[in-house]
Design a protein around this nucleic acid. Structure first.
Lengths: 217, 217
DNA sequence: CTTACAATGAAACACGCGTTTAACTCGATA
DNA sequence: TATCGAGTTAAACGCGTGTTTCATTGTAAG
């Protein structure tokens, strides 16, 4: 059995996910990764040729790991019925994304962190990530919005709504440190995933309803 | 006359703004900066002690430069009357921010780039930047929102509206590359600063009006 | 027992970085 | 003219990085 080799490679991958999620590709060092994985620095060349390849494989592994451990609370909820109430689906979508954005600090989910980082700081692997990982979610969001927006809404109109939603959710993660400097710590605690996601939901629904009115007018 | 010294220091600052705006603090190298400024590497120690101080001074200079070259189309329009129609002020605020976000590619404005980078990728200087530069804009936005939102709206409620606005605008810059991978190039061109800012304005106003209704109910 | 080979380990290499040192230039001043 | 000091220059230092080399281990096959 080549159990040890698989173990070492797997440990290396998981350590890389954590390292790159916390520090990004550039700031992440192979020495720290190997330290976490308890393997020699040479292992990265042995198993992955170089740092760049290790990173790409780590992102892919993070993707696979997320699909493996989907329930409960996965990104694509198993009960997201395409024929369900689109408003409820939208609310759930927002809730999940905000939770990812604001709660990634306490319950550290390196797989999610890595994806967020890829979006805000693209690397050579971003094209793959977008196609394999982000694309499906973006299409699902667009499906929901298509049902909610008036029939006459154009693709670009719908996409702007999608970007508005995504932008709001991601802002709490990306600008997290700056937000912490702009408001008091006490108020920061009040911005729970529940409150924030509800706010975004109300805002989106209000905009959608307005679009419906101006469209019919 | 100490014209040459001032020249060298100024050239260093401007080169640093460009370098840090394009590559960020970590990726920016003092050697490249000195190359652009056509000065010796030691000049950064001579004039600014070290890289970090040079960076902070560069950001401050970028701030000053923006205020110097304010009209036309500056971030804080000279005609932003605190007593003017808050809806119009909001529209202008959004328009300016979106313009910064989407047009920073063609007309390279290193000063703006530097600020955006500070928000999405904080450095040691971020605390200063937030206090001196971002804070005033954030407060101005909150002044506008305070006039538009119902009296009973809490601080955190108003702040969430502010973050929603900022998040939407910044998303077009931060997730620019990913957006380019999600939609066609033709549609990408359709997302002009005018359309996007109008969309965000409509969305925000709809949300504000809904808040007013639910508040009075 | 010997061999073969995957796996590991320790050390060094080559490079770029920020930083520092020390020498040099050159105009102002006494 | 001699002196001083601000400005500038070239070279090196110390460090951390990704990467490479080469020796060593452990295990399975011949």
């Amino acid at each position: 059995m080549s159990s040890t080799t698989t173990d070492a490679k797997q440990r290396l991958l998981e350590a890389a996910i954590e390292e790159f999620a916390l520090h990004g590709y550039d700031h992440g060092t192979v020495r720290r990764i190997c330290g976490k994985a308890d393997v020699n620095v040479n292992a990265v060349k042995y198993y992955f040729e170089d740092k760049r390849t290790l990173y790409i494989e780590a992102v892919k592994e993070a993707h696979r790991a997320r699909h493996r451990a989907m329930p409960p609370g996965g990104l694509i909820p198993p009960d997201d019925d395409p024929n369900g109430d689109p408003a409820i689906r939208l609310k759930a979508f927002i809730r999940q994304m905000v939770t990812m954005a604001v709660s990634a600090q306490k319950r550290i989910d390196h797989n999610h962190l890595l994806i967020f980082r890829e979006i805000s700081d693209p690397s050579e692997a971003t094209r793959d990530i977008v196609q394999e990982f982000i694309g499906p979610h973006f299409r699902r969001l667009n499906d929901i919005l298509r049902q909610l927006l008036p029939k006459g809404a154009s693709d670009s109109q719908r996409h702007m709504f999608a970007f508005s939603l995504i932008g709001q959710c991601m802002h709490y993660k990306i600008a997290g440190p700056v937000i912490g400097m702009l408001i008091s710590e006490e108020e920061r605690r009040q911005l729970s995933a529940e409150r924030v996601s509800d706010h975004i939901y109300q805002l989106m629904m209000a905009g959608i309803e307005r679009a419906a009115k101006t469209d019919s007018a």
